[in-house]
């Protein structure tokens, strides 16, 4: 396994366990690496679209999809841990990645009405809702934070 995959597994393992994204310093300490090596791995993982560093601070993680490194309007509860997702797709992506049941608390994009989605026994529980993609696939990574 190469360095980037090792860093990737450390990031995702920590996120799955705690819901909190590690910094490059955290990952470096865990893997006995130099922080600069880890920050460089963050950049390469970004090129592979597996991670988005925090704008202005390449040693911090804004997104490791489906997980968010910051609080968002998409809160996911699974296995007693709280996670934040980048969007409604990623909110379902967290139980998919964890292979766990989950409850997603979000809000209607127009009215702000609280909405809950649930995943039980490996499937999304039918809920009256629709999902709107405002940005076409060709532009998703033009501004992934907006998307």
């Amino acid at each position: 396994m190469d360095l980037d995959d090792t860093v990737k597994l450390e990031i995702y393992g920590r996120l799955a366990l705690s819901g909190t994204a590690p910094t490059a310093t955290d990952v470096a300490h865990a893997l006995a690496l130099a922080p600069d090596e880890v920050t460089a791995a963050f950049a390469r993982l970004h090129q592979r679209r597996l991670l988005v560093p925090e704008p202005g601070d390449p040693s911090r993680i804004r997104m490791a999809p489906p997980f968010s490194g910051v609080e968002t309007p998409f809160r996911v509860q699974a296995g007693g841990t709280t996670y934040f997702a980048n969007c409604v797709w990623d909110a379902l992506g967290i139980p998919a990645a964890l292979h766990r049941d989950a409850a997603v608390d979000a809000r209607d994009g127009h009215t702000g009405e609280p909405m809950r989605l649930e995943v039980k026994h490996g499937a999304a529980v039918p809920t009256p809702c629709v999902i709107h993609f405002a940005v076409p696939a060709a532009r998703w990574w033009t501004d992934i934070v907006y998307t």
Partner: peptide
């Protein structure tokens, strides 16, 4: 991408 309760809410947004 965003979640909505109804198509009407998407149209209004």
């Amino acid at each position: 991408m965003l979640l909505f309760r109804s198509e009407e809410n998407v149209s209004a947004w």
